[in-house]
Amino acid sequence: MTGRQPTLDEVAERAGVSRGTVSRVLNNRQHVSAKARRAVEQAIDDLGYVPSVAARSLASARRGAVVLAISSDDPALFANQFFAQVIAGVNTVMEDTDLHLMLILAATERGRERLERVLQSRGADGVMLLALRENDPLVKVAEAGKVPVVYGGQPLERAPRFYVDADNRGGARSAVEYLISTGREHIATITGPQDQQVGVARYLGYREALALAGLDARRVAHGDFSQESGARAMTELLDRHGDLDAVFVASDAMAAGALEALSAAGRTVPDDVAVVGFNDIVTAQHTTPTLTTVRQPIEALGREMTRMLLRAINEDTPTPLILPTELVLRDSA
């Protein structure tokens, strides 16, 4: 090609790849297949493309780190099986990069200020957000950082540009539909926090399944995803709704607490009360009885969040992703 300088878009079109892939090849970034790299190099030769020194300098000005910011101030959070599996998934992808991972607990003003300092000092290439609550100020801090932001789960207020989530609503609906199919009619729920999208979505799935079956959806108690809150909520439900014959619990940790409360009340599981949880953490296989639950791909959530962030950092345009869930039948229902 003679005359004018070919554009990056023309190189991408000639190679049959995205503009972001061309940028990664030009800057010798990872996460480019050998086939794509060869196609880009051939397109550059064919078109006579000469990359701008200034443009390459700007594109390669990476900070060398990404942040996983969690809207929690509990240091014990990293012992939580859900978050531990998410972090394991994140780490699996990060191991194949030259980037460092920073973990920040950012539910408090101090934690948010720490993230703000990192972003203002241009100390990170991108941010992943997890466990957000309604109108969470962490969102404003992250979005003001002028770097790509990927959400683990959608915030309640809006659908962001980049997010990875599980089918929480559909998974909850399938759990309650299964309970209905086994002849249960007085089905209660223990919800997660209603200021978090995940808690709201699972509650909506419960309500939808009962509405479609023409059953009462007013046997409700609220928890905070902890085992202790599950036990308290189950005791509350037994006091208010002694006729219940099943309960859908919005997390396995709360379901473990519910099983303890049912045992203390002399109710057998599943004969008197069937119990279904959500997540399929390791605990679900070791409760008494073992827990029927909705499996969400927790490690995959961490992996896909990280892959999406890397693509966004490299100027690709990833689309939001909803991961499937599945019902795992064990002894509690």
Rank of each mutant, 00 (worst) to 15 (best):
Q5I: 14
L8C: 04
L8V: 07
A12Q: 14
R24T: 00
N27K: 02
V32G: 06
A34R: 15
R37I: 08
V40W: 01
D45L: 15
S52L: 08
L58Y: 06
S60Q: 15
A65W: 00
L68S: 02
A69H: 08
L77A: 05
A79V: 13
Q81F: 11
T92M: 06
T97N: 01
A107M: 08
A107F: 05
T108Q: 14
E109H: 15
E113M: 15
G123I: 05
M128A: 02
A131S: 14
L132T: 06
V141P: 12
V141C: 12
K146L: 15
Y151K: 09
G152Q: 09
P155A: 08
L156T: 03
F162S: 04
N168M: 09
E177C: 09
R184C: 05
V198A: 13
R202T: 08
G205N: 11
F225K: 04
Q227V: 09
S229E: 13
S229M: 13
G242L: 00
F248V: 14
D252I: 02
E260N: 14
L262P: 00
A264W: 01
T268D: 07
P270F: 07
V273W: 01
F278G: 04
P289R: 09
T292E: 03
E299S: 10
L301G: 05
L323M: 04
E326V: 12
V328Q: 03
R330F: 11
